[in-house]
Design a binder for these strands. Structure first.
Length: 193
DNA sequence: TGCCCGATTAACT
DNA sequence: GTTAATCGGGCAA
């Protein structure tokens, strides 16, 4: 039984929502896959875009949950977030990697002839593969052209420090599907006692 | 207005 | 391992 995720799914604590999204399926115009990696950002978190208050860029983060926040990273790459928590809490999850399952042809065309492992393994890569840009900023996640489906299988979720940030880099708010071949980077193996 | 730097990636050595 | 590409946000002046 496939269950569509509604906007209300996101109206809870971002640290609660984040692990539940691992294994969920994200499609944009029928192209996408299974979410295998993401990171949580809260407005009380110095690494979050919303930390210093609302601006033109981050306005969507301060709106209601269940919408897409898309921003340009390093002047080059688009990155996709899902807004979480009640309106005004300005928290979101950054979608960092997908296991491609639908529309492989379109993804290969947009990304160039690469190893399928590199199609969606990174926040900029997956936006390029799905064709997501600033035009989708503010789109509802439970309405076309977006589709989101809850996971249907049991998954094992691993956590670790977030990637590519300098502030609050110690907080373990990166979540991944254990053993996935489509992570942007491996998670550190637990150290033996 | 000017300057620095970033929730990144690919192509280097 | 290192670094260029590329540009908007945020802050100092």
């Amino acid at each position: 039984m496939v269950r569509r995720l509604k906007r209300s799914f996101f109206g809870r604590g971002v640290l609660e929502v984040a692990p539940e999204l691992i294994g969920a399926t994200l499609l944009f115009k029928g192209v996408g896959g299974r979410i295998v990696e993401l990171e949580a950002y809260r407005h009380t978190d110095p690494a979050a875009h919303s930390f210093r208050g609302p601006t033109e860029r981050n306005a969507i983060m301060f709106g209601p949950p269940g919408y897409a926040y898309v921003y340009l990273s390093y002047g080059i790459h688009w990155c996709l977030n899902f807004v979480c928590e009640p309106k005004g809490s300005a928290s979101a999850v950054l979608i960092r990697a997908l296991e491609p399952t639908a529309g492989l042809g379109a993804m290969r065309r947009r990304r160039g002839a690469l190893d399928d492992r590199l199609l969606c393994s990174g926040p900029g890569r997956l936006c390029q593969a799905l064709g997501i840009t600033h035009k989708q900023n503010g789109f509802a996640l439970d309405k076309a052209p977006f589709e989101l489906f809850a996971r249907t299988d049991d998954v094992e979720v691993v956590t670790g420090p977030r990637i590519g940030i300098t502030k609050a880099a110690d907080r373990p708010w990166r979540y991944g599907l254990k053993g996935s071949r489509f992570l942007s980077k491996p998670f550190a193996r637990p150290v033996k006692p």
